[in-house]
Amino acid sequence: MKGQGFTHRFGYARAGILAAFRRERSMRTHGFALVAVFVFLAATGAPPLWWALVGLAAGLVLVAEMLNTAIETLADHLHPGQHPEIGVVKDVAAGAVLVASLVAVLVGLAYLATLLPGLAA
């Protein structure tokens, strides 16, 4: 697989993104939330800096969720049974998604604070 052209590599990446959305309800939930957040940013006339900050935070959540999915899929394939260390790996990956989500929420709250004069003071 090494040395393949950009088109092939892009196709693999696209297939991975689609697989994550197909397999994981959390990915679909995050994707739906992302669309809702972008609609909200457009409706409130958010400046470009906020689009960038929210986009980075949301992208962080999607990347963490995809890595979590990859780790869980690999762990389940390599060791289908219950194992304490596999459980730790899955918990840590899920924790990464939680941390990324909390960061995204904080960015969202910071933006909301700019919209509500009482909160910004």
Rank of each mutant, 00 (worst) to 15 (best):
A52R: 13
H77C: 09
A20H: 04
M66H: 06
A120W: 11
G3E: 14
V39D: 09
R9E: 14
G55R: 01
R23P: 00
P48D: 09
R22N: 12
H79R: 15
T114G: 05
T7K: 15
V35W: 10
L41Q: 04
A93K: 03
L49K: 10
R14A: 15
A13K: 08
L106G: 13
A42H: 07
A104W: 03
G59K: 02
V89W: 09
A110K: 01
K90H: 03
L74V: 11
L115M: 13
F32M: 15
H83I: 00
G55S: 06
G5K: 12
L18S: 09
K90P: 05
V63L: 12
A36V: 13
T114F: 08
L74G: 04
F38R: 01
W50K: 03
F6D: 11
I71C: 05
V99Q: 01
V107N: 06
A96D: 07
L116S: 10
E72C: 12
H77A: 15
G5N: 15
T29S: 09
L18T: 07
V35C: 11
G31V: 08
A100N: 03
F32W: 11
L60F: 09
V92Q: 09
G3T: 12
V39Y: 08
F6L: 14
L60W: 08
G55I: 00
E72R: 12
A52I: 13
V35Q: 04
D76P: 02
Q4R: 15
L18F: 08
V37F: 07
L67Y: 09
A58P: 02
W51E: 06
P47R: 12
T29Y: 14
L106P: 04
H30S: 08
F21I: 02
V107K: 01
V39T: 10
P117D: 11
A33D: 03
T29F: 14
H83T: 05
W50G: 01
H79M: 13
A96E: 06
Y111F: 15
G16Q: 05
G95Q: 08
G16K: 06
A46D: 05
L98S: 14
F40D: 02
Q82E: 15
A15D: 15
L62Q: 09
I86Y: 03
W50Y: 10
R28S: 08
L41F: 07
